[in-house]
Amino acid sequence: MTLHPTDRAIVEATQAGLPLVPAPFEAVADTLGITETELLDRLDRLKKQGIIRRIGAAPNHYKLGLVSNGMTVWDVENAVVDQLGEKVGALPYVTHSYRRPRALPEWPYNLFAMVHGQNRDEVLEKQKEIAAILGTACRANDILYSTRILKKTGLRLRRKDG
């Protein structure tokens, strides 16, 4: 899909964050040379289109004391994976949850749920809670801990003119 040039300019101007001033949208509109009304209309449309998921804050889980994260993975019956996935995604300690294709024979799991806790015991407790929710629809599961960040670069929209 192609973004309108003004929308693209909005993405570029805000992807690093909004200014923390009383009228942040007005400030962004000023730098873009558009009215605040136009900016708010465009942001609203981008949200309705799903291009903007939300406008808010991202917490640092490590700073919040949640130092252990486990990628729990589950082999859930296809017929019920979406319905159960919604329940798992709604759990307060699950930050991301996705349905993904299996890669048989190496990988039988089709539901991924990232679980955060203060330590591995807590993560294991949460894993048990998820297992209880999935019940007999789940045939197998595993948990993968991250032991090292090997690379991390944020999403950056490439500049069209650069």
Binding site: A16, L18, Q49, I51, A57, A58, N60, K63
Partner: peptide, 14 residues
């Protein structure tokens, strides 16, 4: 404690 404050774009939608 907060790493970022602003719009979160769906990278795929972009």
């Amino acid at each position: 404690i907060l790493t970022r404050f602003g719009p979160f774009f769906d990278a795929k939608e972009l």
